[in-house]
Amino acid sequence: MNNHLRQLEDQSVYIFREAYKHFDNLAMLWSMGKDSTVLLWLARKAFFGHVPFPLIHIDTSYKIPAMIEYRDRFAREWRLNLVIGQNKEALAKGMNHTLGRVECCTALKTNGLKNLIAEKGYTGVILGVRADEEGTRAKERYFSPRDKHGDWDFREQPPELWDQFKTTFPEGTHIRIHPLLDWTEINIWEYIRAESIPIIDLYFDKGEGTRYRSLGCAPCTAPIKSTARTVDEIIEELRRTTVAERSGRAQDEGRGMELLRKDGYM
């Protein structure tokens, strides 16, 4: 493993351990994508093979079926405590992306998560957000407070220096914890290679000349043209590309992400 990856790992592990020490009711989001799977792996690094908090999957019901199979397999193998959240009410009323992408993400993901946080009383939620993904995430903190409505006040972010994080907060609010903030897309793949992390095969071309670069709900996530069949080939491809990672993610259009994230989106 190269030096930089090692430094990223050390910093993420440090953040995990701070989170575990300071939050009694901690949980981590796992979407089965490459980032949150690396996140899960780092948790096992931090706690020497254990994952001492539950993993949340917000199931929009529109996920690609292979993702659910993958989830259940590793939940078993790694003895994970899996908590599945779903906004059943919104689904019952027929929420889907044709009613508006931002509306659909807000109802099924943001509100699905917020409801679960309220129900379980989580005070710390760990997410695999990265600064290089899009503009508002570039301005995030490692420990980022959400108010009692789950909203993000980006004007009043806490100072964060010398690895002293915001770990005290008023009752009714919670903290989002971002151990992957400093990682880039290519770092994620380099780490997957260095650690031989089992990753879902939707990321690889299986002969059709396409693969997913970023995973989300089936209707709003498009595969990219690519013939990368292995982790090595993906890394090689990323070194040459100038196309943004989330170009296949529909909700990023216009000011979509700023609006979504202000209201508590991941």
């Binding site: 600064a131 290089d132 899009e134 503009g135 508002t136 570039a138 301005k139 980006f154 004007r155 972010q157 903030l181 400093d182 880039t184 000011r255 700023e258």
Partner: peptide
């Protein structure tokens, strides 16, 4: 390019630190 928040662009100032690669 990097003042991602609407408010930052409207006021023409940077409000928060951005990390870029």
């Amino acid at each position: 390019l990097f003042d991602a928040f609407l408010e930052e662009q409207e006021q023409g100032i940077t409000i928060d630190t951005a990390r870029t690669f």
